[in-house]
Write a protein that binds this DNA or RNA. Structure first.
Lengths: 200, 200
DNA sequence: GACAGTATGGCAGTCTCTGTCAAGTTGGCA
DNA sequence: TGCCAACTTGACAGAGACTGCCATACTGTC
């Protein structure tokens, strides 16, 4: 029950998850997502299929999950309250993507490719992004003294989310050759410009 | 092989689909989406489970599908080329939602509730919306003489899509009491306003 | 070295979804 | 009226994702 022991367990779990994920991606690259069964992954990772589902609630989550997911909220909270929204977004994107990119660029690219090409995964990703949008809407509403479910806050948050996904999509279509962070900046810029014209 | 016969078959299929859908929604209201199996629906609709899948590719599609889906593209094409984007969106929304609302308001509300509350369905809906966004992006790019995969066009289309979904969500959270079309207008307005502030 | 908490494996079973084949229906045509 | 071709349906078997349950093994503690 000691904290250290708990941390150790947690860390070991994370390590195992990463191992399973690595095996899974290897198989996906080899045979494709649909042609790879959970049994295949479990076998490759030398665990039982039953244990697979103790580390990932669904097969989709092998692709969806990353180590930075759990700390995304902390990252947002760590930004100063008076920072402009666009800047906060850049910082978060930089932290999350940067970390993933540094650890395994090839896997990140493959992951975004899967998220773009497998409908099932894209759907889940968009839903997850929606939750992130809710968090952002709450943050925005708080900053402006609005109710958390204010329509304006929600709309702006959703639009930002959509812009970021669009940027990541563009990056992936370009085989990851362009600079993702720059693409995000451009997408946000285009968003502001596009709406400007349309406001009337 | 005559056109009329083809039309007849198509119309009969649509009728059967509507019947299955009605039975399904009845059961969903009664026992919830997850607690209703495809076998239940098939039994209630007096068809074999196998036949169910001939009318709907997946259980999710019973909720996702509506009669206006196939003609959405035609609606878009029917708008004049020089019409402002915001106006086109209002018109399409009006045509699609209006039709559904008139036929069965209670079912429409239940449908949007399911789309909001069942993660699986929300995910699929968002993915489908993404396809609509692609269409919109192409239209927009064409109007402005840009390449179809232009980042600006994609970003704006995605942002509009997000705004509309946000409006529908707000409508559903309000139990359908407010005016959906007005909410859409407000969402688009907030989008333009919000971006204006953020452009700098 | 026994004990509590946790991790794992195996098994049976549910549910969605697909391929296949046989039987029935429908609409024209001789 | 009888017959053909296209299409529709149902029954069956089976794959694959996922869950509940129970027995077993591991880990750190006293």
């Amino acid at each position: 029950m000691a904290e250290q022991s708990y941390d150790l367990r947690e860390r070991k779990r994370t390590k195992t998850r990463l191992m399973i994920q690595a095996e899974a991606f290897r198989l996906f690259a080899e045979k494709g997502y649909e042609n790879t069964t959970v049994d295949d992954i479990a076998f490759a990772a030398a665990i039982s299929p039953r244990t697979f589902f103790r580390y990932f609630p669904t097969k989709e989550d092998v692709v969806l999950w990353d180590e930075y997911d759990p700390i995304a909220a902390e990252l947002v909270a760590a930004r100063p309250d008076d920072e402009p929204l666009a800047e906060t977004l850049r910082a978060i994107t930089r932290a999350a993507i940067g970390g993933l990119y540094r650890r395994d660029p090839a896997q990140l690219l493959m992951r975004t490719r899967l998220l773009a090409s497998v409908p099932e995964l894209r759907a889940r990703m968009l839903a997850q992004q929606g939750s992130g949008g809710d968090m952002l809407a709450a943050l925005l509403a708080q900053k402006r003294g609005l109710r958390a479910d204010d329509l304006a806050a929600r709309v702006i948050a959703a639009a930002f989310g959509a812009a970021i996904i669009t940027a990541v999509d563009a990056w992936q279509r370009d085989d990851g050759k362009s600079d993702l962070l720059e693409l995000v900046d451009r997408a946000i810029h285009e968003l502001a410009e596009g709406m400007r014209e349309l406001g009337d």
